[in-house]
């Protein structure tokens, strides 16, 4: 088997695994019960899946100019997916779109309520952040 054939086989494996991970991410966002768990599905398998597809494409094309652009796509993905997931999760929590009954422990709500109680003790006016 020549080097080109090996690269093609590796590319095929990467493409199929990557697509399968994308499919898993899609199944996850349909099946999971609330936004935060859906974000788990939409961040991890999706990032790795896209990375694998990009690697597969790079192995198939094997030219310098495409490789640099594909490297950029991969780097951007790894940098932006966590930030995007965090932004959406944060907005969800602050907009009360989180199903608290699905949480075993919720230390952020405890923390916010403590802070609210302290503020009310100091300044018995209208409650902040109501």
């Amino acid at each position: 088997m020549s080097g080109d054939e090996v690269a093609d086989v590796l590319a095929a494996i990467c493409l199929i695994t990557g697509s399968a991970l994308s499919l898993a991410a899609a199944i996850g966002i349909v099946r999971f019960p609330d936004l935060l768990t859906r974000l788990h599905a939409a961040s991890k398998p999706q990032a790795l899946g896209l990375l694998l597809v990009i690697i597969g494409l790079g192995l198939r094309l094997r030219t310098g100019i495409d490789a640099t652009s594909l490297l950029l796509v991969g780097v951007f993905q790894l940098l932006t997916v966590p930030v995007g997931a965090h932004m959406v999760g944060r907005a969800a929590y602050r907009n009360r779109q989180v199903h608290r009954e699905l949480l075993v422990v919720d230390e952020l709500t405890e923390r916010l309520e403590e802070a609210r109680a302290e503020a009310a003790e100091r300044d018995p006016g209208p409650p902040p952040g109501a």
Partner: peptide, 26 residues
């Protein structure tokens, strides 16, 4: 049900689109 759920869905669709274009190029 919320706008953020829809945003997550759009994100996944977009990444499927990227992957699809990459598969076609490959």
């Amino acid at each position: 049900p919320g706008v953020l759920d829809r945003m997550v869905a759009v994100d996944v669709i977009l990444s499927c689109l990227i992957a699809g274009i990459a598969v076609e190029a490959a």
